[in-house]
Computed example of a mutant assay.
Amino acid sequence: MNMTKSDLTTTELLLLNSEMNKREKSLGLAYLMLLAGHLGVHRFYLKRIGTGVIQLCLFFLVILFYIVFAISVGVESVESPDSMYSFFFLIPVVLLAIALTVWVIVDACLLPGMVRKWNAELEQSLIAQIIAHRSPAGFGMQR
């Protein structure tokens, strides 16, 4: 059974609003975290741990391949200036960086919906908890 705010008393509504103010996610803060989007910080904030870890791992892979590319370019320039094998390390850097950039751009568009969904689920959960903790009708009333 899906309960709504209209099923709550005034006191319960005050409690709901208080808890929502403490726990709800902010769209503005999520967008600020998106500035570090390649690290997946905004996904961790919205409790999307799995995809946050994937973004973080992809970011570290890009950095790793870039470091290997930079070292191989330096080694090649000393040993054989005509060799171009180091550029094979540049391909994964470019592909992964493009994939992460597209993902962050898509997240920028999806972020309002993700925050709205999180807050709606939180509100439903709080309403269910408040209703579950109601005292039975007439219990504790004095005669």
Rank of each mutant, 00 (worst) to 15 (best):
Y31F: 09
Y31H: 04
Y31P: 05
Y31V: 09
L32W: 00
L32P: 04
L32A: 12
M33I: 06
M33R: 08
L34V: 05
L34E: 02
L34I: 05
L34H: 00
L35K: 00
L35C: 09
L35A: 11
A36S: 12
A36L: 13
A36M: 13
A36K: 02
G37H: 04
H38K: 09
H38W: 12
H38Y: 13
L39W: 10
L39F: 13
L39A: 14
G40P: 00
G40L: 04
G40N: 05
G40F: 03
G40S: 02
G40T: 04
V41M: 11
V41L: 15
V41S: 12
V41Q: 08
H42Q: 14
H42G: 13
H42K: 10
R43A: 13
R43V: 08
F44W: 00
F44P: 03
F44H: 00
F44M: 00
F44V: 02
Y45H: 07
Y45C: 07
Y45S: 10
Y45E: 06
L46M: 03
L46A: 00
L46H: 02
L46Q: 01
L46P: 00
L46Y: 01
K47L: 11
K47E: 15
K47V: 05
K47A: 14
K47N: 15
R48A: 15
R48L: 15
R48K: 13
R48W: 05
R48G: 14
R48P: 10
R48F: 07
I49L: 12
I49C: 07
I49S: 09
I49G: 09
I49R: 05
T51A: 10
T51Q: 13
G52T: 02
G52S: 04
V53S: 09
I54N: 01
I54P: 02
I54Y: 00
Q55I: 02
Q55T: 07
Q55M: 13
Q55P: 05
Q55G: 12
L56K: 03
L56A: 11
L56D: 05
L56M: 13
L56T: 01
L56V: 03
L56H: 06
C57Q: 08
C57A: 15
L58R: 05
L58S: 08
L58A: 07
L58I: 03
F59K: 03
F59R: 04
F59M: 12
F59N: 09
F59D: 04
F60P: 04
F60E: 11
F60G: 11
F60Y: 10
L61A: 13
L61H: 06
V62C: 13
V62M: 12
V62F: 07
V62Y: 08
V62I: 14
V62Q: 07
I63N: 07
L64K: 06
L64A: 15
L64Q: 06
F65E: 00
F65Q: 03
F65W: 05
F65A: 02
F65R: 02
F65Y: 11
F65G: 00
Y66D: 07
Y66W: 12
Y66P: 01
I67L: 15
I67E: 15
I67C: 15
I67S: 15
I67F: 12
